[in-house]
Amino acid sequence: MTLIESRYQGQLRCLAQHGPSGTELETDAPTDNQGKGERFSPTDLVATALSTCILTIMGIVAERHGWDLTGTDAKVEKTMTSEAPRRIAQLSVWIQLPAHLDEQQRAVLMRAGEQCPVKRSLEGAVPMELHWN
């Protein structure tokens, strides 16, 4: 179990603290929803969680096999619905694997990334596309 405490600070900004590490992050409402957009929005964090989870799970597998994934990139695009109720309409992720990996290594890493816990948690609720390069 991980405890994360969040506090509303006013002006559509929140401060969250990660219990185990004490690390803090702030969120803002996005500019298209009455906010300043000066920080990640809560839905931005969902998108970020997906891309970083894919990278982390691939990193775990790569380390287990002694493969170097340093510099592997993931870009995520979040699209919101244009009508109410407001929600994430689509998450698209582009993952750039290192050129030095062979086809078997790439296949192992792609399978691992596709099974990340965030993706599994969002499946059926949020449409997602993963693009592998």
Score class of each variant (00 low, 15 high):
L91T: 02
R106H: 11
P30F: 04
I4H: 07
E129Q: 15
I57G: 00
T27C: 04
W67P: 01
G71H: 05
A62F: 05
S92D: 13
L130A: 07
L45C: 11
E5K: 15
D32C: 12
C14H: 11
E123H: 12
Q11N: 14
S121N: 01
Q104F: 05
D28T: 07
W132K: 08
L50I: 09
L69W: 05
E123Q: 14
S121T: 14
I88W: 09
I4E: 09
D44W: 03
I54M: 10
H100A: 15
K36I: 13
A16S: 14
L97A: 09
L91I: 06
D44S: 05
P30A: 08
A107Q: 13
V108I: 14
I60S: 00
N33Y: 11
C14F: 03
D44E: 12
G124F: 05
A62D: 03
E103H: 11
T48A: 12
H100Q: 15
E129A: 14
D28G: 09
Q96G: 14
G71N: 07
L122H: 06
S51C: 06
R111P: 02
E114C: 06
M110Y: 10
R120Y: 10
L122V: 03
T2W: 07
F40W: 13
R7G: 00
A84P: 07
L91A: 01
T31I: 15
H131D: 11
A29V: 03
L15A: 04
L12D: 10
F40T: 12
K75F: 11
D44Y: 01
W94A: 13
L97D: 10
E24A: 11
P30E: 07
S82F: 04
Q34F: 07
E63T: 04
C116T: 08
M110T: 15
L97P: 11
E24I: 12
T48N: 02
L101W: 06
Q96A: 15
L101G: 02
R111S: 10
G66H: 01
A47P: 02
R106T: 12
I95P: 00
I60Y: 02
R106W: 10
A99T: 15
Q105F: 07
L25I: 09
L50H: 10
R111I: 08
I4F: 08
Q96V: 15
H131G: 04
P30W: 08
N33F: 10
I95E: 02
T52F: 00
A89P: 02
C14N: 13
V61W: 10
R87Q: 07
E83R: 13
G71A: 08
D28F: 06
E24T: 15
L122P: 03
E129K: 14
D68V: 05
I57Q: 00
L130K: 00
T79I: 06
E129P: 01
G113Q: 11
D73E: 15
E63G: 13
L55V: 07
A125W: 07
V126M: 00
V108D: 12
I4M: 10
I95L: 02
M1N: 12
Y8G: 09
S121C: 01
M80H: 12
A29L: 03
D68C: 02
K119C: 06
T27P: 08
Q90Y: 00
E24Y: 05
